[in-house]
């Protein structure tokens, strides 16, 4: 997991802004710039997107500085093309508003974009941080009230950390089976 804590603040803010574009969240504090704050509950950043991206098991940690730099270059180019002047006190991608960030991510993940695999990969891990929290043990994540698993409504396990659903079926026939079903219950 090395890397997240010691990361350069420009990289952190840039990747947080990317993660927030994938699954948006509420601002953590009033002057939060990385999170655009377009919704009122936590998103990918608070779910742990940066911890996951820097996780040693993924093999991306060394590439994150470069990715943040590339993302800021794209943001700068995009702003220049639109003749926008970006706030110089934050990284260019962070300076974009949520809709501009979204438009840029759409462009970068378009099937025709040469870097599509890179940006989809980052987006995949941001989504996973939110909806399955693979940087945490799932039981621990649930016990900590992980925001993504909570929003999904992922059920809690039994005391032995296993899931069981004893009440699982309507227990009635809800369709007529195909008339040519064989005696073994198979398609003819």
């Amino acid at each position: 997991m090395a890397g997240a804590a010691a990361a350069d603040p420009v990289r952190t803010a840039t990747l947080e802004a990317f993660a927030d574009t994938i699954i948006p969240g509420a601002k953590r504090f009033p002057e939060d710039r990385a999170i655009a704050g377009v919704v009122d509950d936590p998103g990918a950043v608070e779910a742990g997107a940066l911890e996951l991206l820097a996780h040693s098991a993924l093999g991306l940690a060394k590439a994150l500085d470069g990715m943040a730099g590339l993302l800021n270059m794209h943001a700068q180019n995009s702003a220049r093309a639109k003749q926008l002047v970006l706030d110089p006190t934050v990284p260019p991608f962070v300076a974009l508003d949520f809709d501009a960030r979204t438009a840029l991510v759409q462009e970068l993940t378009d099937p025709s974009h040469p870097e599509r695999e890179v940006w989809f990969g980052v987006a995949l891990f941001c989504t996973m941080a939110f909806d399955s929290a693979p940087h945490l043990s799932t039981v621990d994540a649930l016990e900590q009230g992980h925001p993504g698993l909570s929003i999904l409504g992922f059920h809690h396990p039994d005391e032995d950390r296993s899931w069981r659903f004893p009440h699982f079926s309507y227990q009635r026939q809800l369709a007529t089976v195909h008339p040519q079903t064989t005696t073994t219950g198979n398609p003819a």
Partner: peptide, 26 residues
């Protein structure tokens, strides 16, 4: 049908509603 979980039951019922058949699969 007693083995079929809710999701399968829902799909079966939706198939019935749409005039289709549906089978529990071995």
């Amino acid at each position: 049908w007693n083995d079929v979980p809710f999701a399968g039951g829902l799909f079966a019922a939706a198939c019935t509603h749409a005039g289709r058949t549906a089978n529990p699969v071995p």
